[in-house]
Each structure stands twice: as C-alpha cells, then as structure tokens.
Design a protein around this nucleic acid. Structure first.
Lengths: 231, 231
DNA sequence: GCAAAAGTGTTGGTTGTACACCCATGG
DNA sequence: CCATGGGTGTACAACCAACACTTTTGC
C-alpha cells in the first residue's frame, strides 16, 4: 500500500486506535473488534483504521467511530500517540489513540468491513490484545480516571436522563472505590450542574428516583466565572 | 524526500515539535528557533524535526532536545498530535508535540543545522508563528497550567536548590495569580516533598532563605500510599 | 412488614483563607 | 532605621466524612 497524494489514499505510517468506553450493569466496558483479516486475524483488538490524506486526524477518528457504531456526535478526544519502533511487527506504524465515551445501550454495533465481530468487554476482563493495545488501554483507563475527577464528562456514559444513584455507581466503577451516598448527592447537587427533569423513574420496585440531566449551558457559564468541577 | 525503509531515513508525514518551557526573572519563557531554510526561512518557530525509522517518537523528541540544548535527562512529555489537513502548506504533515521543562540558566543554546538563531521568549510576548504553532503553544500552556496543579513537576524549571520564594514566584507566573506567602509555605512544607539542604542563600540583601530540594524518592513513596499532589 | 433504594439532618474534625506579626540582613 | 524578603501564629469560615435517620414503593 504505497503512499501517494491522491485525495483518498491513506497515510501508511500512521494509524488510529479507539478506546470506546461504555457503562453497563454497574461496570465499565471497552468495545473490541475481532479482526477478520491481516496479521491479527481472529484476535480481539481495539477498533482502528487509517487516516486519509484529505481528512484531519479528528475527522478520521470520528469517521471510524461512526462506521463502527452508526452514531455521530459522540464524546471523543485524543489520548496521545504511541510510537515504539517495534509496536507493529510488519512495518513502522505510529498510532494515535483516541478515547470515546458512549451510552452503550443506545444503538446496535456494526463490525464493518475489516472486523468479523464486535463486542463489549468488562474493563477488568480484557483478553491479551495484539501490538501495544493493552498498554494503550491501560494508559487510557488511567487517563479517564484522572479526567473524570476534574471534568464533568462521565455523563456521556449514561442515558440523557439519569438518577443520582446511577451516577454514583458510574463513578464508583470508574474510580474503583465506594462513595458515601448522602455526601455524593450533596456534592453533585450543590454544583448546580444537574437539572431535574419533570420525570421520575418508572417500573422500579422501590421508591422512584428523580431524574436529572446534565446542564451543559450552566457548566459553561460557571466555568467562565472560574468554577472548576471536582470529584 | 521520498520515504523508504532504510534505517536512517525519516517518516515524511510525521514531524515532532517541542515546547520548551523555561523560567527566568519571574517569568515563564518558551524557546524558539529561527528557521535558516525552508518555507519559513527567517521566521521564529517551535523547534522541531523528523522521526527516523529506527527510533521511537520519544527517542526522537529527546534527540532533538539534546541537539538543541546539549543537555540530556530533561523532563519531557508528549503533549498530543496535531493533524489538521492544511496545517502544513507544502504537503500533509501531522506533528506530535512534546513539552519540556528546563532550568534555563544551566547551559548554552545551540541553534543546530537548520536554525540560524535560538532565543527565549516570554510566554506573553510570543510573535506570530508559522503553521499551527501558536495553537500548539496555547494548548501546551493550558496543559501545563493544569498539570502543574496536580503533579510536582514545577521543580524542573528551577535550579536543584531553590527557596520557597522562588517556588512561589514560579507558580504565580505559571498560574497567573498571586498566592499568599504563609499559606503557600505551609502547604508545600506539610507535603514533606521538600528536603531542606544544609545551605542558605548567599549574597542577598536581606535575610538569607533556607534552600530546599525536591525529594523525588519521598514523592514516589507517598504516591504509593495514595498521596496526590495538589496545588 | 420487609427489602431496597430515595432522600434529609447533624456533628465533629480538617482544611483553607485572610491577615497580623516578628526576624534577619544590607544599605 | 528602613526596605526587603524570611518566617510564624491565629482565628474564622467553609468544607468534608461519617453515620443516623425518615420516606416511598413493590412484593
């Protein structure tokens, strides 16, 4: 696959790999695909692909994510580049890793052309992956732990409307700790980032909880005034 | 410059750019080089270069930094990749940005082969730079502000032995605020990360201050126990 | 009534902030 | 004796952790 400058050709020394985080059943998940071809045929790996000459790296990551999930407008950020000399056995390839946060139960998954299967794996039950994908995953998970403490991004893993209990479980799963319910409630509510919906939970076998949604406009306003999200 | 797989050849779609931070006269500085050739001849820009097929991207960044400053073992971390389609006018080049923290008065600078000059610029007095270098610089500065709050890396900008006042001025310069002296002292000293030297300042026209050094071993030990540096 | 989760209240200790103050040294 | 920075003490407010408690709902 020699490089050339035709618009649709790809950059053959650079790839993109995506860490797609989801949250189901109280546990943090990662989306993996099973390669249908190439030197890692039949192995689970991070979904990835190549960058075209006529798209930015962010666009490339979004395109890959869209083709995999069918969903656009997903929270997606660059993690960093990984470039050990021998990370890819066939030839020299440097990869730029991205991480995405998605609400796992919103859509169906599509393996696409180069994958034969696609599946969620619990973050603590990841198989041995090819190349440096385990390293990328570990780095990304540590990054997420850090990030989730200082920026209100966790909401992207939940449905639009969620309860405080769901939110707490999410944080407990990501941070691998347990949190005090009353204190967690107060802390979050006092930030004024959660707008109560006019709805309550339904079909639960206990008192129905208030549903909230993340108020992004309020967050932007508060941040201008120097507010910093924490914990 | 067509790519090939000879060990010493470079990857022509990928470059490295370095944000080299220094601290002088109470102000945060950035090192820029004046291009001696190429499409940005005679313009100031971030120091950068190319990645060879037989070196990792971290090694490439270290090599570039060493050739520029003559110093090894400098604090150096990857920032992230920048890859807009038209960031580089001649052809498609994605760049991986690194940032380094150095003690500016420890060595002499060497422009190297492709630069005619090299110079420190105050962070608030940066000229218009070519490509997306101003954007990289802004992103890196924001990243540094964030990082310096949560990890004890500021010390890399100071001499091995420093006073609390110097440290405070450093933080004030990076964070663009003023800090309360007594509270700053207590906070830092209570962390037990500063080991007092058996020395005091000399040749100052006021009471000589205690000199401290950053105790990395202690930091590693404390971090294992769950300690998190803050502010 | 019981289980399960929603939701509120209280308390004591820690931490942060603001500021007043004394000390040492050179000029 | 004054300017400059070094260094300590204190007091109030804000915050946080721990835990006891009440409420609502389905079975």
């Amino acid at each position: 696959m020699p490089p050339n400058n035709f618009p649709d050709s790809i950059i053959d020394t650079l790839s993109i790999d995506c860490l797609i985080f989801g949250f189901k059943d109280g546990e943090l998940d990662i989306l993996l695909v099973k390669h249908a071809e190439g030197i890692s045929k039949d192995r689970w790996a991070l979904p990835g692909g190549w960058i075209q000459y006529n798209e930015s790296i962010d666009d490339a990551a979004n395109r890959l994510l869209h083709s995999l999930t069918g969903v656009s407008n997903i929270y997606l950020e660059q993690l960093r580049a990984f470039g050990h000399v021998d990370r890819y056995p066939a030839n020299r390839v440097i990869t730029i890793a991205y991480y995405a946060l998605v609400n796992a139960d919103n859509y169906s998954l599509n393996p696409g052309f180069t994958a034969s299967d696609v599946q969620w794996f619990k973050i603590h039950d990841i198989p041995k992956l090819p190349y440096d994908h385990n390293e990328i995953l570990y780095f990304g998970y540590m990054h997420l732990k850090q990030k989730v403490m200082n920026e209100p991004i966790g909401f992207n893993l939940l449905p639009k409307k969620f309860t405080l209990h769901q939110l707490q479980q999410l944080y407990e799963a990501i941070l691998e700790t347990s949190l005090d319910k009353p204190n967690f409630r107060r802390k979050l509510l006092n930030m004024n980032l959660l707008k109560p919906c006019n709805e309550k939970q339904e079909d639960v076998s206990h008192r129905a909880a208030q549903l909230y949604r993340f108020d992004k406009k309020m967050y932007d306003k508060l941040r201008e005034k120097g507010f910093i999200f924490e914990l």
